[in-house]
Amino acid sequence: MIDYEELRIIRERRPASFEPPVKRYSIRWERSVDLAITAYYGAQAPTKEAVEQADFKQVMLAAFASDCGPASVEQGFFVDAAGQYNFVFVAYWLDPLRHERWEADSQLHAWWNDPIRLAGTIGLWREVLRVPIERMETLYAYPDYKVGIARCPPSTFTLTRNSGYFGAMRDRIPASAVDSLATAMAFPQPVKRHSAGTRWLVHVPKNLTVIRSGQYWAKCGGEQRTDYLVKMRPLLEKGTAHLGQYPEETGCLSMRLSRCVEAGGRERDESFNHAYFLSLAHLEEWSASHRTHLAIWRHAIEMMKAYGEKRELRTWHEVYVLPEGGQRFEYVNCHPRTGLLPYFEGSRLE
Rank of each mutant, 00 (worst) to 15 (best):
residue 2 I to N: 11
residue 5 E to S: 08
residue 6 E to A: 10
residue 13 R to G: 05
residue 13 R to E: 11
residue 14 R to E: 08
residue 18 F to D: 09
residue 19 E to V: 13
residue 21 P to H: 14
residue 23 K to A: 14
residue 24 R to G: 12
residue 27 I to A: 04
residue 35 L to Y: 05
residue 38 T to A: 08
residue 40 Y to Q: 07
residue 42 G to A: 14
residue 42 G to N: 02
residue 48 K to H: 07
residue 52 E to G: 00
residue 55 D to C: 10
residue 55 D to F: 05
residue 59 V to C: 02
residue 59 V to I: 13
residue 61 L to Q: 13
residue 66 S to C: 08
residue 66 S to N: 09
residue 67 D to H: 14
residue 71 A to D: 15
residue 72 S to P: 00
residue 88 V to T: 05
residue 89 F to D: 00
residue 89 F to E: 00
residue 89 F to R: 03
residue 90 V to N: 04
residue 92 Y to M: 01
residue 95 D to S: 08
residue 95 D to W: 02
residue 96 P to L: 10
residue 100 E to V: 05
residue 102 W to G: 00
residue 107 Q to T: 12
residue 109 H to V: 00
residue 114 D to L: 12
residue 114 D to Q: 03
residue 115 P to W: 02
residue 116 I to W: 04
residue 117 R to E: 11
residue 119 A to R: 15
residue 120 G to M: 09
residue 121 T to L: 06
residue 123 G to L: 04
residue 126 R to Q: 13
residue 128 V to M: 10
residue 128 V to A: 12
residue 131 V to N: 09
residue 139 L to Q: 03
residue 140 Y to M: 03
residue 141 A to S: 15
residue 142 Y to I: 01
residue 144 D to K: 11
residue 145 Y to C: 04
residue 148 G to I: 03
residue 148 G to S: 09
residue 149 I to A: 09
residue 152 C to M: 12
residue 153 P to L: 00
residue 153 P to Q: 12
residue 157 F to C: 07
residue 164 G to M: 06
residue 167 G to D: 07
residue 167 G to R: 07
residue 168 A to F: 08
residue 169 M to G: 10
residue 171 D to M: 11
residue 174 P to I: 01
residue 175 A to T: 07
residue 177 A to P: 01
residue 177 A to I: 07
residue 177 A to L: 05
residue 178 V to S: 06
residue 179 D to C: 11
residue 183 T to V: 05
residue 183 T to D: 03
residue 184 A to Q: 15
residue 186 A to E: 09
residue 189 Q to V: 12
residue 191 V to C: 10
residue 194 H to C: 15
residue 201 L to V: 11
residue 202 V to A: 10
residue 207 N to K: 04
residue 207 N to F: 00
residue 210 V to A: 04
residue 211 I to L: 12
residue 213 S to V: 10
residue 218 A to I: 03
residue 219 K to Y: 05
residue 225 R to L: 13
residue 225 R to S: 12
residue 226 T to D: 15
residue 230 V to P: 01
residue 232 M to Y: 11
residue 238 K to F: 05
residue 238 K to A: 15
residue 241 A to M: 11
residue 243 L to H: 05
residue 245 Q to C: 06
residue 245 Q to F: 02
residue 248 E to T: 04
residue 250 T to V: 04
residue 250 T to A: 07
residue 254 S to L: 01
residue 258 S to H: 06
residue 258 S to W: 00
residue 260 C to L: 14
residue 261 V to E: 02
residue 262 E to Q: 15
residue 262 E to N: 15
residue 263 A to T: 14
residue 268 R to Y: 05
residue 269 D to W: 04
residue 270 E to V: 02
residue 270 E to F: 09
residue 277 F to T: 04
residue 278 L to C: 08
residue 280 L to R: 00
residue 286 W to D: 01
residue 287 S to R: 10
residue 289 S to I: 02
residue 289 S to C: 04
residue 290 H to R: 12
residue 294 L to S: 05
residue 297 W to S: 13
residue 308 G to V: 07
residue 315 T to N: 09
residue 319 V to H: 00
residue 320 Y to P: 01
residue 323 P to M: 02
residue 325 G to I: 12
residue 334 C to P: 02
residue 342 P to V: 06
residue 343 Y to M: 07
residue 348 R to E: 05
